[in-house]
Design a binder for these strands. Structure first.
Lengths: 163, 163
DNA sequence: ATCCAATTATGCGATCTGCTCAACTCGAAG
DNA sequence: CTTCGAGTTGAGCAGATCGCATAATTGGAT
């Protein structure tokens, strides 16, 4: 049984081309990558299969939807109720992502808000969830390094010597 | 002067359709949204302009590149050296994103690693950066709520009463 | 009532897609 | 070394889509 959910070098090259022009046609991607159109097409088909690439939603900036504020909230939770709390958090639209982490804060919550008042309201909503013992909110002032994964991608494409 | 970098309801509907089928043709999107093909095309053109949508890289899961471990690292930094530290962090491929935040930890760093040893190595690299005073690493055990922005999108599409 | 920007409708040739088939490459197994 | 098979390539074809233009329509602001 092969490991199908892992990108090989061909995938990586294709993804780099897609990163440059996300809506490029298969023909254009074939030229860009040096692969044949057939290969590009069959690879694309697999990539857009559910569970392979992350969702398109990742590309939608909250700022452009009217949510310029981002906050990172850590939470200490009554451990037995962790799943309950997660469900309750999922009910809050402004909660974009929740991570369960090791160590003292149990949860890590990514939140957006329209303004300071809005954030205060959302923080209140989160504190009111049964099982939440303590929270700490940090406002994001600046994105010093924007999300990027290209360095890792290129690492997979370039090195012909290592493997 | 209009506010061009903000999505209206039409954009939101288009984005929802794209979320369902990221590589759908303009014709298909027109049908799905009830808009004309021309509108879809001109909107798409604007959306793929640099600086409007986030990069395609957001959709590439690090796990599929061989980085199954995710860690969230908080940092206390000599404040005058904040930009220096950010630059140094940008030089580490496994650093996917860095946020400057308000409060005691100054930086928030999103890191991936191949395994525990790899993470240890990367953590060492980060600690060695001049200006870094203290770090705290938390391992991500589970993604309790996967990144999603659809709730906010739908909020913009549905409510004809509120505005 | 008038104006203006955005959307829609329609049409055109060039391009691309979805699909198929045969030939080729190359590493693994026998 | 030979055989096998998966992945890739090249070629071809009908039909769909794209990119672009032009004119009509809509709906909100002046």
């Amino acid at each position: 049984m092969r490991n199908d959910d892992r990108f090989d070098q061909t995938d990586a090259r294709l993804l780099l081309a897609l990163a440059a022009q996300p809506r490029a046609t298969a023909v254009a991607l074939a030229e860009e990558t040096g692969l044949s159109r057939n290969t590009v097409q069959s690879r694309l088909l697999r990539l857009e299969q559910p569970g392979v690439l992350d969702t398109f939603e990742q590309r939608i900036p909250p700022r452009a939807l009217g949510y310029p504020l981002t906050a990172l909230v850590t939470m200490v939770v009554t451990q037995q109720r962790l799943d309950e709390v997660a469900d309750a958090l999922a009910g809050v639209p402004e909660v974009l992502q929740v991570h369960g982490i090791s160590g003292q804060p149990d949860l890590f919550v990514h939140v957006v808000a329209e303004d300071a008042d809005d954030l205060y309201r959302i923080a209140g909503q989160m504190l009111a969830i049964p099982g939440v013992e303590r929270t700490n909110t940090a406002l994001v002032m600046r994105e010093l390094v924007s999300y990027r994964i290209r360095p890792l991608l290129e690492k997979r494409v370039l090195p012909p010597a290592s493997r």
